[in-house]
Every structure is written in C-alpha cells, then in structure tokens.
C-alpha cells in the first residue's frame, strides 16, 4: 500500500541554473491548491519513460506556505539509472506529471534555539524551504554552504543577496572549506545542526559533532541514496506467487511494482524503513545499500530494503 493519493501536476517552468542543475516548477492540473508542507519535505516524482516508471524523491525547495506551486531542483547524474537525465532531457514545459503528497524525513526541530545548517552541493534544496519557514516565524538560523565552484553554486546569489549576514559560502576549487571545529565550538546552547550533502560531508559533521560532545538528538541529516544500477537478477515473490526479473537499470522496488504487486514505500532512498521486506530464502549475496537496517540485520540476510538494495546469486525469495 502506497499511502495517500497522488497529485497530478503540470510543468509550468524549467530553469537551467548551471551545467548540472535545473529547476522545475509544478502547478496542479486541476487549478486548485497543493497541500502545504514543512521545510525539509520531499515529493516523489513519477517519470513515465516508455514501459518504465521511475520514481525519484526530490526535496521541495519552494516556500512551504505557497500552495500555488512546488519547485524542485534536479542535479543531472550521468552515472545513475537515468531518472535525473530523464528530467533534464525529456521533460518539457506543459507536460503533465504525477507527484506524491509531501513527506518530511528531515524536519526542523522546533525546540531549537538556533538552527545551524550545513549544505553541500545539491543538498542546499531542503534548506531553501526551511529558511522560508523560519523567516516567517522569525527563527534564528545560519547557513554554511559548500560548492564545487562559483559556476556550480546553485542559489548562491539568491542566498547571499537576501540573507547576507546569515549565509557563508565555500568554494572547493578556491581551497575554501568550512572550519567545522570553530563553527561547532561557538554555538549557543540549544543549537541544532542540520546537514544535507554528500555522504562524506554528513559523516564528517556527525563525527565531529559526536567527538565534541553534541547530543545525538541535536544533529539531523538527510542523505537520499539514488538506487544504483547493477546486474539483472531474478526474484520470487512468495505471497503473490510471482517470479520477476529486475533489470540492470531498475530497482527491485520498481520491478515489484511493475509486476502489479503493491509494496509500501515513502522515501525510495533507503532512509525511511517503510519498504522493509522479509527475506524468505537467499542463496547468494544481498547487496545492502540502505541506511535503515542495522548491521546485524544486514549480516543475517533476513531483511532487504528493495528501494536501493540488490541481489547477486542463485535464488532470492521475498515475503511479498
């Protein structure tokens, strides 16, 4: 069961920001209002590509209180399975698409006295919505944003113009880096840290914060994994009594859906736990790629997160 009704939207604007990132604006097809959301929420965008339906999560970056449209920014990933490439090359203004109700797995902790945001690259997008939400409530926040270069610094101009005193930008190619030690050292009590960016950055911030004695509950992070392509494999679904083939460019979850079996999901990025599926039998190796299962659960091969994980071997039977 996949939850709430989907929302039919029309693409009303496509704005390339730089070589890699393009922004898309969606308005409801029926002309009504979209559900409001909270800063940090994402929507799952369905992409119909011939027989294949890809569903990728993207952070909502527009003003959460603006119900006339949602906007997302998509970074092209040439190594990926083609979802972002589809958005960049196939989607045109005027197209109808399907998006999910907003889901927030990267919510602001509203108890925080101050919100310290650390972004890397395309990880800037959830913060754009959170900043709009906090500004409306006169919240105290500060953003540190690392980009590869000025040319790839999406929304740098907007952020530094509208919030010159609250935003610091760091360019890798100019040898600039966030001075994390002093940044984390001088914060007022009750500060919460939010980090969104590449895996390395998230681990760096979490590790440093832990080392400096920050409470675990005060450090928030979001890393969506894009499902990686891999060798095709076969799966038996025990409950629905079907044998399905998972193609090189599709995820196990997508293959289950393609077979007409309704499977739960929320984030499709290995983070939320909703699609957790019991493994009945596995002769071979499960390639666990999620953030959800504990290490011992991964080692036992009794569970799999079909949104991002794959299988190599002889037989895989799932309780689905």
């Amino acid at each position: 069961m996949s939850g709430a009704e989907k929302i039919a939207v029309r693409v009303t604007d496509i704005t390339p920001l730089n070589e890699l990132v393009t922004r898309f604006r969606f308005e409801p097809v029926n002309g009504g209002l979209l559900p409001t959301f909270s800063g940090g929420a994402h929507t799952v965008v369905e992409m119909r590509d011939g027989d294949i339906t890809r569903m990728n999560p993207y952070s909502l970056m527009s003003d959460p209180f603006d119900r006339s449209a949602y906007t997302i920014s998509v970074r092209r990933d040439d190594e990926g399975r083609g979802g972002s490439k589809f958005m960049h090359t196939r989607v045109k203004v005027g197209d109808e698409m399907i998006v999910s109700n907003p889901v927030n797995l990267f919510s602001l902790d509203l108890r925080a006295k101050k919100h310290l945001m650390i972004a890397g690259g395309i990880g800037i997008t959830p913060f754009l919505a959170q900043i709009k939400q906090l500004d409306r409530a006169h919240g105290n926040w500060e953003l540190h944003y690392a980009c590869r270069s000025e040319a790839l610094g999406s929304y740098v101009d907007y952020l530094t113009t509208t919030h010159p005193n609250d935003v610091s930008v760091y360019y890798d190619d100019q040898g600039q880096a966030i001075d994390l030690d002093s940044l984390l050292d001088g914060q007022p009590l009750g500060t919460h840290i939010y980090v969104c960016g590449p895996k390395g950055m998230i681990e760096w911030v979490r590790g440093k914060a832990a080392e400096m004695g920050w409470p675990r509950e005060a450090v928030h992070y979001e890393e969506f994994l894009a499902p990686q392509p891999g060798k095709p494999f076969e799966v038996k679904l025990a409950i629905s009594n079907k044998v399905i083939q998972v193609g090189e460019q599709e995820s196990l979850l997508e293959a289950i859906e393609r077979a007409g079996v309704d499977a739960p999901y929320l984030c499709r990025g290995g983070a939320c736990g909703q699609c957790e599926t019991n493994v009945v039998q596995a002769e071979g190796e499960i390639l666990h790629r999620d953030h959800w299962l504990e290490d011992d659960e991964k080692a036992s091969d009794t569970k799999i997160m079909p949104c991002v994980s794959r299988f190599e071997g002889k037989t895989l039977v799932l309780d689905r």
């Binding site: 939850g3 709430a4 009704e5 559900p35 959301f37 109700n101 907003p102 889901v103 929320l266 939320c272 736990g273 909703q274």
Partner: peptide, 11 residues
C-alpha cells in the same frame, strides 16, 4: 510506532 511515524499527509 513504526506505523505512526510513517503516517503521511493526506492518508
């Protein structure tokens, strides 16, 4: 709890 944490808007 697992169920409740995943209750979505509109559902």
């Amino acid at each position: 709890l697992k169920f409740l944490l995943n209750i979505q808007q509109g559902a």
